[in-house]
Amino acid sequence: MTDPYAELVGQASAVEAVAAAARDAHRADGGLGVMTHAWLITGPPGSGRSNLAYAFATALLAETADDPAAAAQEEARTRAQVDARTHPDLAVLASDRVTITIEEVRRLVTASQYSPSVARYRVMVVEDADRMSERTSNVLLKALEEPPERTVWILCAPSEADLLPTIRSRVRVVRLRVPEPAQVAELLVQRDGVDAALALRAAEEAQSHIGMAHRLATDAEARSRRDDSIRLVLETDTVPKAVRGAARLLDIAKADSTALTQEREEAERGKALASMGVEPGAAVPPQLRGVLRQLEEDQKRRATRGLRDGVDRVLVDLLSVYRDVLMAQLGAGLPLVNAAWASEIAALAARTKPASTLKVLDAIADARRRLPANVPPLLALEAMLVSAVLERAA
């Protein structure tokens, strides 16, 4: 049986913390062990927050057995249910919206009051807990203050600062770190059979984001889109080019977002039709069309978030390029994130100053902050590129 924590590369201390807690939670006499009932898993994007949360949930939900073979079989069965999100004692809140709504949290809080049906604990996982407003967070806070004895909450967020202080004071924090690119590359080689050199380049360019590294290593079109965005920015040297370039960057982000969501949306529609007994290609009866309309509305909301995430991915790539430019200007001697662009980065570093590069980095960071504030992505990209051109000419 595979290790449920195998994909959490470079996270030995975090894995040991939750694994030890899960072991202590199951006492040999069948009673309840000493258990913290609210957890917060923090870490940068791609570090494996949700992977750790579901591995922890599996350990809590799987029944223990004296026979090693029986214990392994039970864990494998529970893992399959957790992976499919079908375990009766697991509840998950993973919103496709830009923010988690108060109604979603209220439903989850209500579900948390039920006693477990087959496992020793009932586990509530909240992905992206940082997407809750203050009012929504206060609904969750009430549930964390007095949780039922057999309910365990597992929240995931980039950092503790993304949650209310009152919530932070009621959770045990497990912090994930950024793994080394070589560790991510090794995972890609062993798990996905990727060529070692390609795996290392993908891990470096993804800045150790495991999911993004996997995409770059296994999807030639994703690599091509990333190269296009970097080439465009490096070649943009006038304001008119910046305006046109912003539109092109938005198109790249849309293509990347569509590539991520299209397959999922088609699978969701097929599953919905199958559950209603509608054959592929057959007309949907009028009385069932409301279900599909709701699915389509959910997918549209997801597309809004997906586009913002796609633009943010482009901006993160550009941050890495100008980070490399600054390192070259300062003679820091640190490895480049974008080694394949070393000559272009050296040329830009030679004809600009560190102060200008810092201002461009600030402009890119400003663009990232504007996206969640509902600034149109095209305007955010235009402002960023125009600033980059002006600083390059200064």
Rank of each mutant, 00 (worst) to 15 (best):
126 V>I: 15
170 R>H: 11
123 V>G: 08
145 E>K: 09
171 V>S: 00
139 V>A: 15
183 Q>L: 12
125 V>L: 04
211 G>Q: 08
134 E>V: 15
145 E>T: 05
149 E>R: 15
148 P>G: 06
146 E>L: 04
157 A>S: 14
141 L>P: 04
141 L>H: 09
139 V>S: 15
187 L>W: 01
178 V>M: 13
101 T>D: 10
164 L>A: 12
204 E>F: 07
101 T>V: 03
213 A>Q: 00
102 I>A: 08
157 A>M: 10
200 L>Q: 03
162 D>I: 07
144 L>E: 05
188 L>P: 06
153 W>T: 11
112 S>R: 02
134 E>I: 15
165 P>R: 05
137 S>R: 08
198 L>K: 13
105 V>T: 09
188 L>V: 06
215 R>T: 07
109 V>M: 09
154 I>L: 01
177 R>G: 05
150 R>E: 14
107 R>L: 14
159 S>T: 13
100 I>A: 09
134 E>Q: 13
125 V>I: 11
183 Q>F: 00
104 E>F: 03
159 S>E: 15
129 A>H: 05
105 V>L: 10
124 M>Q: 10
167 I>Q: 04
104 E>C: 07
215 R>C: 01
164 L>M: 10
150 R>C: 06
162 D>H: 11
195 D>R: 11
128 D>H: 14
170 R>N: 08
194 V>T: 11
204 E>I: 02
179 P>A: 09
190 Q>N: 06
172 R>W: 08
100 I>N: 03
143 A>V: 08
130 D>P: 01
118 V>F: 13
182 A>C: 09
182 A>P: 05
170 R>P: 11
132 M>A: 07
186 E>H: 06
110 T>V: 15
175 R>M: 07
210 I>M: 11
188 L>E: 03
146 E>C: 11
136 T>Y: 05
185 A>F: 01
109 V>C: 06
207 Q>L: 03
110 T>S: 15
187 L>Q: 03
118 V>A: 12
